[in-house]
């Protein structure tokens, strides 16, 4: 009988203790200790290095971005500088081309003038030679022309005509 009562009492006590809604104090103590330790570790030991690493990474990324931005700005500036230099060089080249063109034109005109002069000189020489040749031919032909004219006149007139007497008339005809 006593055993039965003790068993019932133990069962009731067990039921009361195992109510799943009520917290178990020893579990709560371990929970409090575990959480307090976790909080302390995270707050003072574990989280700061993680945040530091993250901040370092953010700083590195920012620095890299800044460097990239600076490099881009430098590239843009260098490109503008090159463009400026190129436009200067182009202007200089155009100026040189103009100068060369003007020089070439002057040279061409000079050469043309010289050629014209030479042509004129040669023409004058040729004219002189032609004149001289013509005069020489006139001189060399005159006796024969005089003879032929005297002969022709003799035949027309029926009497002899002296070639020397016809000289002035022949000169007049040949010079006209």
């Amino acid at each position: 009988m006593l055993l039965l009562l003790a068993a019932e009492a133990a069962e009731e006590a067990g039921e009361a203790a195992s109510n799943p809604i009520l917290p178990d104090m020893s579990e709560m103590v371990w929970g409090v200790l575990s959480f307090a330790l976790l909080y302390a570790l995270i707050n003072y030991v574990l989280l700061p290095p993680i945040l530091r690493a993250r901040n370092d990474r953010a700083a590195t990324i920012q620095a890299d971005r800044d460097a990239a931005e600076a490099a881009r700005a430098r590239a843009v500036s260098a490109s503008a500088e090159v463009d400026d230099q190129l436009s200067g060089v182009r202007a200089e080249a155009a100026e040189l081309v103009d100068e060369a063109r003007a020089e070439a034109e002057a040279e061409r005109q000079r050469l043309v003038a010289r050629a014209e002069r030479e042509v004129n000189a040669m023409q004058e020489i040729a004219d002189g030679e032609i004149e001289r040749e013509r005069e020489e031919a006139m001189v060399s032909l005159r006796p024969q022309v005089a003879d032929l004219a005297a002969d022709a006149a003799s035949r027309v007139m029926g009497r002899s005509v002296d070639a020397s007497a016809a000289g002035p008339a022949i000169d007049r005809v040949m010079n006209s």
């Binding site: 020893s26 371990w30 330790l37 976790l38 570790l41 574990l46």
Partner: peptide, 21 residues
Amino acid sequence: LGFNKIALISLLAMLIPAAIF
């Protein structure tokens, strides 16, 4: 300070994240 399965899990719930970090 009775240490049962729940207490062990509470301890592990502290130790595992601490170890990961």
